[in-house]
Computed example of a mutant assay.
Amino acid sequence: MKVVIVEDEIAASDNLTFLLKAINPDIEILTVLDSVKSAIMYFSTPNMAELIFMDIHLADGISFEIFEEVDIKTPIVFTTAYDQYAIKAFKVNSIDYLLKPINEDELEEAILKFRSKSEDDKGINAQMSGMLQLLQTKTKSYKTTYLVHQRDELIPIKTEDISYFYIETGIVKAVTIHNKSYSIDKKLEDVENELNPERFHRINRQFIVERNAIVNIKHYFNGKLIVNVNPPSKERMVVSKAKSSEFKKWVNS
């Protein structure tokens, strides 16, 4: 069996290698990857891996970010010191896991399970989507307040009071539930990364909309959607055909 280990702690990867060899000396460790970036690069090219052992927390992020960039169909066993919230997610998504410190008997059971497991045509990505959202919501701290300039003052604006963000002549603005507009000294991409994806959604290059601000959604030509919000937007909010399915799924979640 050819194995790839994704683990940023040398001691942990060495221990896992030792246990695997103890279980079966014929197991071949193809490589040890220590970051999200290196894993994306490795799995973006053809490889011989038959089983992957992957830690959740890596030096440069959460390992589930890998699956946003690469479609991995190789079976995966996750190694984690995570709490019961995450463990529940693993069970729901039918992906095996091992709690650290890894027990040799449990490791052997995981190997036996994946040897007997039939190939999933949907791939790992289909199983991963729900878990990725759960873990990111659990581990990431989202922006709660924006400090904005108004004349000679600095005013704190709570994100819960913002209906949508948009770009106007290169400037990002936030519109509140009270229909007041404030300039945000950031790129829209940076704002998007700071917001809770359960509440805010980037519908196109110009707009990020808050869930509760949506009044209705209307069908447009060529499979596009028009989103009407409160307070109303000066510019028409259009969701492309390519993003319409994802957007409707988000609204309906």
Rank of each mutant, 00 (worst) to 15 (best):
A86C: 15
A86E: 06
I87A: 12
I87G: 07
I87S: 08
I87Q: 12
I87Y: 10
K88D: 15
K88I: 04
K88F: 09
A89N: 00
A89I: 00
A89P: 00
F90Y: 15
K91M: 09
K91C: 07
K91N: 10
K91D: 08
K91Y: 07
V92P: 07
V92W: 10
V92A: 12
V92K: 15
N93V: 11
N93M: 12
N93P: 06
N93W: 07
N93E: 11
S94F: 10
S94E: 14
S94Y: 09
D96C: 05
D96Y: 09
D96N: 12
D96R: 05
L98C: 10
L98G: 09
L99N: 04
L99S: 04
K100P: 05
K100V: 02
P101F: 03
P101C: 02
P101M: 02
I102D: 10
N103F: 00
N103H: 02
N103D: 15
N103I: 01
E104S: 13
E104Q: 14
E104Y: 09
E104M: 12
D105E: 13
D105M: 04
D105S: 07
D105C: 01
D105R: 04
D105I: 07
L107Y: 01
E108T: 02
E108H: 06
E108P: 01
E108N: 07
E109H: 11
E109L: 10
E109V: 03
E109K: 14
A110P: 03
A110D: 03
A110I: 01
I111S: 02
I111P: 06
I111G: 04
I111M: 07
L112Y: 14
L112P: 01
K113W: 07
K113Q: 06
K113C: 04
K113L: 11
R115D: 14
R115N: 15
S116A: 14
K117V: 00
K117I: 00
K117W: 02
K117M: 00
K117G: 01
K117S: 00
E119V: 05
E119Y: 08
D120C: 09
D120E: 11
D120R: 02
D120N: 14
D121F: 08
D121W: 03
D121I: 08
D121R: 05
D121L: 14
K122A: 13
K122E: 13
G123E: 06
G123V: 04
G123C: 08
G123D: 08
G123N: 06
I124Y: 13
I124C: 15
I124D: 12
I124A: 14
N125R: 02
N125F: 05
N125M: 01
N125S: 08
N125G: 01
A126E: 12
M128T: 01
S129N: 13
S129R: 14
S129P: 05
G130K: 05
G130C: 08
G130H: 11
M131S: 13
L132M: 15
L132D: 10
L134D: 13
L135K: 00
L135H: 01
T137G: 07
T139L: 13
T139Q: 06
